[in-house]
Each structure stands twice: as structure tokens, then as C-alpha cells.
């Protein structure tokens, strides 16, 4: 088999960020909670590897801690999407054509009409801004995504003979869903999970950039970009660094997702 270069480079990129996050809990080059105004807007040096921001905070440390916010928000949001969407999709598929199916699918359409930014706006307008808003907004938007993917894939499995065989053995829909459907659509869900994870990182950056996500002093990549905009004329470095971090992280996840799909989807594998 051909070596999945995509998958490997994706895993390497993603691991770098995850390692940086893990490291940030025990060590960062500098403390990001301490503002050293005297050292503000410094170019990269031996002391500050990537320079400092407008408050004199170490950029590398900020990026490491900022990655926490991005990854945490994206993971929890994907968790919400899978935790709620997958059971809904399985239920809808198991009761195809029933009222329940109709209600679930209509509900999906309804949520699809609310882009995560709009959900975030609504929540923020009523409860005020916080990182939790971003999680909720992205998570809610993920629910119909997973519900649809699950339902579509599950429906095609339900038509197979081994499901009929299981039914003649007296197995009920729930048991069949868990034992026969879920394992056979897991690949697809893993791939979709990676895609939503990367979309979550992008969405979180966008939300915190406009101030609907993580609030200061919690560092986040989107927030850093918003702050950098003021300084874009004199120190574009402040805007480059968080942006490149986002691109690399998302690129890594997407490469991993594509690689996984090629690896797990027998149809594509055959085509090669």
C-alpha cells in the first residue's frame, strides 16, 4: 500500500500543537499573566523567541496558552455534536419515515438556518460574552451536521441483509443500531469529527476575534489577532504569528482527515 503522506504529515502537525498545549500546563517560556510594558513590541530575541506583544507578553507563551482555548473549544463542540447528533441520526434512521424521523430532520433544518455566528450573537446578546458561548454556538451547529451524516450513512446500512438477519433473530432497533450500524459508520464519523474539529478551530478564532468568544485576559488566537489589528502598520508580526498558528493547526487536522478517509474508505482505496 502507498504510504499515506497526507496522514503522517497531518498527524505530525497536529501532534506538535497538542504537545505544545500539554507543555503549556507545566511550562511556558514566560508567564502570560504578567504584563511587562517595558518589553512591549520587542522583536524576536534570545529572551523572547518570537518577540513580545503590545503588553510585553511573550508571543510564544501566548500562542501556547492560546492553543488551549482553541483546542478545548473545538473538542467540546465536536463532543456536543457527536454526543447529541449521532444518537439523533441513529434514531431517525431506525425509524425512517416516521413522525420522529420527520421531527428530527425538521429540527436539523431549523438549526442549519442559524450559522454558529448567529447563535453566538444571540447567546451573547442575552447572556454577555464568554468562551462558553463559543463552545455552545459551535457545538449546537455541529449537532445537525453529525445527525445528517449519521442518518444518511445509517440508512444505507439498514438496507443490508445482515440487518434483516439480526431482526429475524429478534434484535430490536436500539441493539441493532449499537451492534451493527454504529461500528460500520464509525469510520465516516471519525473523518467528519476531524473536519468539524478543524472548522471549530476556525469558528472559535472568528468568534473571539469579534469579541464573542474567550474574553481577556484568557489568551486566544482570535483575540490576539483582534489586538494585532491596531498594530498592523508598525508590527505585522503580531498578526502573522497567531494567523500562521491557526493555518498550521487547521491544515494539520484537514490533512489528517483526508488521510484517514483515504485509509478507512475501502471505496477510495480500491480506486487507487
Amino acid at each position: 500500500m502507498k504510504l499515506p503522506i497526507q496522514l503522517i504529515s497531518g498527524i505530525i502537525l497536529t501532534s506538535i500543537f497538542i504537545a505544545a498545549v500539554a507543555l503549556s500546563f507545566v511550562w511556558t517560556p514566560h508567564d502570560v499573566t504578567i504584563l511587562t510594558i517595558a518589553d512591549k513590541l520587542q522583536a524576536p530575541s534570545e529572551k523572547y523567541w518570537l518577540g513580545t506583544d503590545h503588553f510585553g507578553r511573550d508571543m510564544l507563551s501566548m500562542l501556547m496558552v492560546g492553543a488551549r482555548t482553541s483546542i478545548a473549544v473545538a473538542i467540546v463542540a465536536v463532543g456536543i455534536g457527536i454526543g447529541v447528533g449521532v444518537p439523533l441520526g441513529l434514531m431517525a434512521a431506525a425509524n425512517r419515515g416516521s413522525l420522529l424521523d420527520e421531527v428530527i430532520m425538521r429540527g436539523n433544518d431549523l438549526i442549519f438556518a442559524f450559522p454558529s455566528l448567529v447563535i453566538a450573537i444571540l447567546i451573547t446578546a442575552v447572556f454577555g460574552p464568554s468562551a462558553l458561548n463559543a463552545i455552545l454556538a459551535i457545538g449546537i451547529f455541529n449537532i445537525p451536521v453529525f445527525a445528517r451524516v449519521t442518518r444518511g450513512a445509517a440508512l444505507s446500512v439498514w438496507t443490508l441483509d445482515y440487518i434483516l438477519a439480526a431482526r429475524t433473530c429478534g434484535k430490536r432497533a436500539l441493539r441493532i443500531s449499537v451492534e451493527h450500524i454504529l461500528p460500520n459508520i464509525a469510520n465516516l464519523l471519525i473523518v467528519q469529527g476531524t473536519i468539524q474539529f478543524s472548522l471549530g478551530i476556525l469558528a472559535e478564532a472568528g468568534l473571539s476575534y469579534v469579541g464573542l468568544g474567550a474574553q481577556p485576559p484568557t489568551p486566544s488566537w482570535g483575540r490576539m489577532l483582534a489586538d494585532a489589528q491596531t498594530y498592523i502598520y508598525n508590527d505585522p508580526r503580531l498578526a502573522f504569528l497567531p494567523g500562521i498558528a491557526i493555518v498550521m493547526m487547521v491544515l494539520g487536522l484537514n490533512l489528517m482527515g483526508d488521510g484517514l478517509r483515504d485509509l478507512l474508505d475501502p471505496r477510495i482505496r480500491r480506486e487507487r
Binding site: 478543524s198 476556525l202 478564532a205 472568528g206 476575534y209 482570535g222 489577532l225 494585532a228 489589528q229 498592523i232 502598520y233 505585522p236 498578526a239 497567531p242 494567523g243 491557526i246 493555518v247 498550521m248 487547521v250 491544515l251 484537514n254 490533512l255 483526508d258
Partner: peptide, 22 residues
């Protein structure tokens, strides 16, 4: 396109401003 997907549009906007406006 793989790279294009990974770029946040608002950051890309900032880069465009930097290059074409500034």
C-alpha cells in the same frame, strides 16, 4: 486549496490590507 481551506478569512483580510492597502 488545502492551504486555502485552512486560512481564516478575517486573517486573510488583514494580510490583503497589509499588502494591497498599506
Amino acid at each position: 486549496t488545502q492551504l486555502g481551506i485552512a486560512v481564516p478569512n478575517f486573517w486573510f483580510a488583514m494580510l490583503l490590507v497589509l499588502v494591497f492597502a498599506v
